[in-house]
Write a protein that binds this DNA or RNA. Sequence first.
RNA 1: GGAGAGGUGGCAGAGUGGUCUAUUGCGCGGGUUUGCUAAACCCGUGGGCUUGUAAAGGCUCCGCAGGUUCAAAUCCUGUCCUCUCCGCCA
Length: 423
Amino acid sequence: MLDRKFILDNAELVKKNCSDRGVVVDVDRFTTLESLRKEKQQHLEDLNRRANDISKQIGKSKSPDEKLKFVEEGRDVREMTTATKCELDEISDESDKIHRAIPNMAHPNAPIGADDQANLEFALGKTEIPKFDFEPKDHVEIAEKLDLIDFDGGARVAGSGFYFLKNEAVLLEIALQRYAVELLMKSGFTPMTTPDLARNEVLQGIGFNPRGNETQIYSVENSDLSLIATAEITLGGLLANKTVDAEELPLRFCGISHCFRTEAGAAGRASRGIYRVHQFTKIEMFAFTLPEQSDAMHQELLQIECQVFDGLGIPYRIVDTATGDLGAPAYRKYDLEGWMPGRNAYGEVTSTSNCTDYQARRLNARYKAKGEKGTRFLHTLNGTAIAISRALVAILELYQQADGSVKIPSALQKYVGFDKISR
RNA sequence: GGAGAGGUGGCAGAGUGGUCUAUUGCGCGGGUUUGCUAAACCCGUGGGCUUGUAAAGGCUCCGCAGGUUCAAAUCCUGUCCUCUCCGCCA
């Protein structure tokens, strides 16, 4: 959420931001409701003060007659209080609903535009696309030939979009995790395996909607839990309703979790193989920072993502996501798109967002600086270190050989224990 | 899953319906004393919202959400969490 006061003081900026992002919200209605809300709030406080006075009088009064007089007055005040509270609740509900729908402000340098204008490239992120002297196969064919993924079994057990990794692919999954976690630990991240489920309240704090037609989230029946779509949810929830000392910041966490996504509405889109699936394993980076640290931290997360993919020898480009394609909490977002020869195209392999204080305000995650009065909201950032399924697509397709075998990226060989998969 | 106990400020721990202010100790900040340190003593010590240029006020928060009452940390209901015991289990 944005700061209420900020919205009221900058209504025009907020409206412009909403239209840049393609989000339809009635900001004017919000402003109207807020002034109404303030008025009612003031009235309610006056009544409360009166009620407090009366009960103090009763506590002090000696004669029963005097007492009775105050009790009756107190009763009247309570009736008014109840009525006012009711009106206030109605106004607040409507106002909060709009408030929650207003997206974060975008970074001034984020490209303005819709989805299809998103692919602005950074020169530094551009790496060489390899040439094959044979017709490269896609990962589904490769995996079938080498017996690495069981799609039929996945479908039988859990439905389309699920799969079993088999044989060397299992070792590759483990190796990729080891590789990424070690790299992150060296960079000062605290590794965590997180719950794969979280309370809906936490999901909402991070910006996910557990219900509704377009939800990406599987929810667990008869409980307020959902399967997480990313460890961003659980790691962000770590500091919900907490206040940390400013000296402890920034905090860097590395979360290992499974990710579950319904992929509602994604049917028919390019989703062959394990590129778009309902479950995968992911190593996620998450940082809590001071406001003045978050831009630099965002660059740091991006650099680490580059380091991870440079180390794996996967060519990629960096996308500075356009406003129309930013999720509501994101202030700025960079995606890494890895080259996937089987698709003959780039495919998204990572994503890193600076969410400034947008998530923290909903989560009520604060910090306190020494010598400063009160508390302020943290900034939160997230980034993919490695999403196993997408990375596997890139590795299988990039490292395939003319004879049908697949070489193991040298950075992973020490973890898998061999340098080639063949049959 | 069953039975019981509990959740109060940074921490410990009082407070079972009303004295206008949630005891007290520790910790923390400042001060006095002191050759330095310590001790002792004194003063001050939460968050959120809000009025005000400020000084200074007001409202709210005792896990969370409701309820009863003129009045709730205290009584009632629900819920979450922690601990102990029992059962089950990788």
